[in-house]
């Protein structure tokens, strides 16, 4: 807390030193944003608006969409599977994101320096993220959490009988959360890159002042890392809400057993492509945008009190 305050004061002081003229750079900004604007216009906006339109239609892909007003949205209220999907997805987001981020930060700090063979360790810890979305993962996960998987072999060694974890409705989601946490490589790499950016002078200065390692971590590293922690929190939440591939592959596209791994986007995808109901799928997509948008807005609002920017 106090460290954050100190840093804030420091940067405010430095800002006062330099002449900081407030002027708009509209022209330059639009030039820098030109590719992005073009992408927004040609690649993003049109399909987004199209999907918004589809959400008010009955559209089975094989025939042109037919306008049906708000029917797709009112249908959501009686859709029990949608509630199942929301329950699964919220559980996943609330459990896997914190676990994944804490693990990623911890390992990033450990792997940041001072260990021989760093490159190897980092790559090994990143490896799961490489196969996390591959078609082979369904089989691999059964090798671990299946009835005769690794986990049960270990349990059997201690005399504990185990059932299949992947195929039991009460544990299937936990195995997918484990899979999500297991692929923590992406946020770890981002943390590693961010740790690299912390000016050595800050740490040296603190060390001269006699700050121990733990104190240096909490009062220098963490505050300077907050923009990236914030980034990871925002995007891991967005990503977790959209989590699809792993549930799709592990459950064979069903979200089973008994809808216990029916992730929101999996349900949306099934509605759109398997059930050929792209209208309803689009409505579901926009509901998801509202939900994720709300989470992100709260994140940005809360960020004002804990994220430290040096600018």
């Amino acid at each position: 807390m106090s460290a954050l305050g100190e840093l804030r004061a420091l940067s405010r002081r430095s800002r006062r030193d330099g002449p900081r003229v407030r002027h708009r750079d509209n022209r330059a900004a639009y030039l820098f944003l030109l590719p992005w604007f073009a992408g927004l216009l040609f690649v993003t906006a049109v399909p987004m608006l199209a999907s918004l339109y589809f959400s008010f239609t009955k559209f089975n892909l094989l025939q042109p969409p037919r306008f049906i007003g708000l029917d797709n949205f009112t249908r959501m209220f009686h859709d029990e599977r949608l509630w199942a999907a929301l329950r699964v997805t919220f559980t996943y987001v609330l459990v896997s994101v914190p676990l994944q981020l804490v693990l990623a930060l911890l390992l990033a700090v450990v792997l940041d320096r001072g260990v021989r063979g760093l490159a190897i360790y980092r790559s090994v810890f990143y490896l799961p993220s490489l196969i996390g979305g591959s078609a082979a993962i369904a089989v691999l996960w059964k090798q671990i959490f299946g009835a005769e998987g690794l986990v049960n072999h270990v349990l059997a060694f201690f005399g504990v009988p185990g059932e299949s974890w992947v195929a039991n409705p009460s544990t299937a989601l936990s195995t997918l959360i484990t899979l999500g946490v297991w692929t923590f490589g992406a946020p770890m790499v981002i943390f590693l890159a961010a740790l690299r950016q912390i000016p050595v002078e800050y740490l040296e200065a603190a060390e001269m002042d006699g700050a121990g390692r733990v104190r240096r971590f909490w009062s220098i590293v963490v505050p300077l890392l907050t923009p990236i922690i914030f980034f990871n929190v925002v995007l891991q939440i967005i990503g977790a809400f959209q989590s699809f591939t792993q549930a799709y592959i592990v459950s064979g596209g069903t979200g089973g057993p008994a809808d216990s791994t029916l992730f929101y986007t999996l349900y949306l995808y099934t509605s759109g492509f398997a059930n050929l109901d792209m209208g309803y799928a689009s409505a579901l997509a926009w509901l998801l945008v509202v939900i994720i948008g709300a989470f992100t807005a709260v994140n940005f609002w809360a960020a004002k009190s804990w994220v430290f920017y040096d600018d």
Binding site: V139, A147, E163, S164, V166, A167, N168, G252, G253, P257
Partner: peptide, 17 residues
């Protein structure tokens, strides 16, 4: 059959599994 969860594990898999 095997216990329910084991039976379930055999669903949706390819022929060879």
């Amino acid at each position: 059959t095997p216990p329910a969860s084991t039976l379930q594990e055999g669903q949706g898999v390819g022929l060879s599994e």
